[in-house]
Design a binder for these strands. Structure first.
Lengths: 356, 356
DNA sequence: TTGTAAGCGTTATCAG
DNA sequence: CTGATAACGCTTACAA
């Protein structure tokens, strides 16, 4: 079979058609038109064959499929989106793509959306609302069918543009009574408070927090501190890191805490498991018994948490479920279903292991 | 100022224009047309104001900017891409987005591309070439200006479609003399061999490998094994995991190795730092001296590697630089520069710390 | 079952 | 400096 069927057909087409604006530069794209010509049908029929094969006769379908195979045709989703005003594209904004907490959430979100034929355009805001605003505009320019945002705090302009876009929006990893559209997450302040309860009830009368530069983490730490101070009547020592969480920062924070002399025994609530793991290592190196002298509580329940030494007591949030629920919330809206549960609280769970 | 300027203008426009096909459904999108009407200029002038302000008078520009602000206009990149056949979109495919090794690489790639105005459509292949093939087709349908792939092994159909797309392609995290287009990475087999040299020269005469389900990791392990056996004259014990690397799997693998009795002393080469860290923990729990009785070597030099106990000896690959170079390679091509270095070998570095 | 025609919101070309 | 006008490659009526 002739590899270059299109060229052959152009002869068939006959008389000199007026040449179009662009001199068909690189072979950049086979069109439905070309596929149709090769299959002996019109362009629309090819469109139908692709979008709803039941509307095309078996024989025609076969010829079209053959033509697609020989031309190596790849549908142009850009043109499709413009014509139908449905892009089958969904946008997602997360604070960090290298942080498993977010990437695992996004992973299950992507899987959920992909199962329905949606592709995901992902960007990272770096925890910065201004950056987020710029990215929202950039994403909106691609005319996504829906959008996922992390957190509930966005600039006024961002909210305005989101509302103006008229598409379903889901905010995740936090919770509010007044979402832009929909929301699936949990309460960070409540989680912080409950960890304080847990610490108090576990018998710790002294506490410290180690918190990365993340508004939600700070909110947890603040709630923890208030509750712990209220119940234990002791001031909580606070360490706020200037940057993101890491094992190294966890070690350093514990070293600081211990060496300062302010904190020699008690419970440390870290804003992430990574920090907590670092804390564990530093304590081990210094020969400080865990949880005997110092207890450590993490946040996130990352997959390594059960395997640290001792195993990490932490707060578990089902990120996979969260991503899944975010996806199905959007999918329901995209399918035209009326919005039912605008706010879904997935909660969290304090998992007691060896470290506290 | 009237919020709904467009409506006001439609009165100005005068007589009944023939209504278009769609009844302007949701206010889904302000157009350049609408902005132009409000600013008292034509649609093309708005386009110019946005793409090349120097071609528009200062006064006109001001009025257009005002109109954009009051209408909340967001450019339609879909229409723009169709008209210009440049999408300003670049596609990236990685095996896993939750694995820092890849996400950190992608992060710096994204930053590099974004600086030039490109957005990145990211998907995860799950280490599966068939899945990758499907994703390549899906991505190509968005008509990206360029594409980044992880690794050098792709299905024949994928290669064919990539070639047909006629866009710059960069393959990363591996190396070959025959890239689809360009390639930036390092040699996995060479790295494996050099780790074997390192182990032999460090005095270990017994070795084992623990390897996750990743073709490149296996290639490193195989090269390590061959070289070690050749130089030390001893068979290398091999543990191949069925799934991805994790701290848990690292612990388990070491437990298996030790309990089998085949391996009581020597060096263990793990296919990732995560596995190595798990190994360290398991050895610690069992009271086995590191590196005295068992030495551990990781791969990747993740940020936690210097902070494990003992600090992890591992193979460092500059992923940030890799992502950056991949971006600049594409950007150069997109700017029309001729391809210079089609293959860039960034190498790797064996970092000796405490564990081996 | 298939085809024709119009239009999606831009950019590129060509005039003025 | 500004404006018509023709594409870009599809999808959606509407007709045959």
């Amino acid at each position: 079979m002739d590899r270059d069927g299109a060229a052959e057909q152009s002869g068939t087409a006959g008389a000199a058609e007026p040449r179009t604006r662009r001199n068909r530069p690189t072979g950049g794209g086979v069109t439905m038109e070309a596929v149709g010509r090769l299959a002996g049908v019109s362009q629309v029929t090819v469109s139908r064959a692709l979008n709803d094969p039941s509307k095309v006769s078996a024989e025609t379908l076969r010829r079209i499929e053959e033509a697609i195979a020989t031309t190596g045709y790849v549908p142009n989703a850009v043109a499709g989106a413009l014509a139908s005003s449905r892009s089958r594209l969904v946008t997602a904004l997360v604070p960090s793509i290298t942080n498993v907490v977010y990437s695992s959430l996004v992973k299950s979100f992507i899987e959920g959306m992909r199962a329905q034929g949606y592709q995901i355009l992902l960007s990272e805001t770096g925890f910065d609302p201004v950056e987020e605003e710029a990215l929202i505009a950039a994403h909106l320019s691609r005319r996504p069918d829906a959008i996922l945002l992390t957190g509930i705090h966005h600039t006024a302009k961002a909210r305005h543009q989101l509302l103006g876009a008229g598409i379903p929006v889901v905010e995740v990893w936090d919770i509010t009574d007044t979402p832009i559209d929909m929301c699936v997450g949990f309460s960070h302040s409540e989680a912080g408070r409950r960890v304080a309860d847990f610490a108090v009830e576990s018998g710790y009368s002294v506490a410290a927090t180690v918190t990365a530069a993340d508004e939600r983490a700070r909110r947890r730490a603040r709630a923890f501190t208030e509750q712990f101070e209220a119940r234990a009547g002791r001031t909580v020592t606070t360490v706020e890191l200037p940057g993101p969480a890491s094992l190294a920062e966890g070690r350093r924070a514990l070293a600081t805490l211990i060496e300062s002399g302010d904190f020699t025994t008690g419970a440390v609530f870290c804003s992430s498991d990574l920090l907590a793991h670092g804390a564990l290592i530093e304590l081990h190196v210094r020969g400080i018994a865990v949880p005997g002298q110092v207890a450590v509580i993490g946040f996130g329940d990352q997959d390594f948490a059960p395997y640290t030494e001792p195993a990490l007591t932490t707060v578990s949030v089902d990120r996979t479920e969260l991503g899944r629920r975010a996806a199905s919330a959007l999918i329901a809206r995209l399918a035209g279903e009326p919005r039912k549960d605008a706010v879904i609280n997935l909660g969290y769970q304090i998992v007691r292991r060896g470290s506290a």
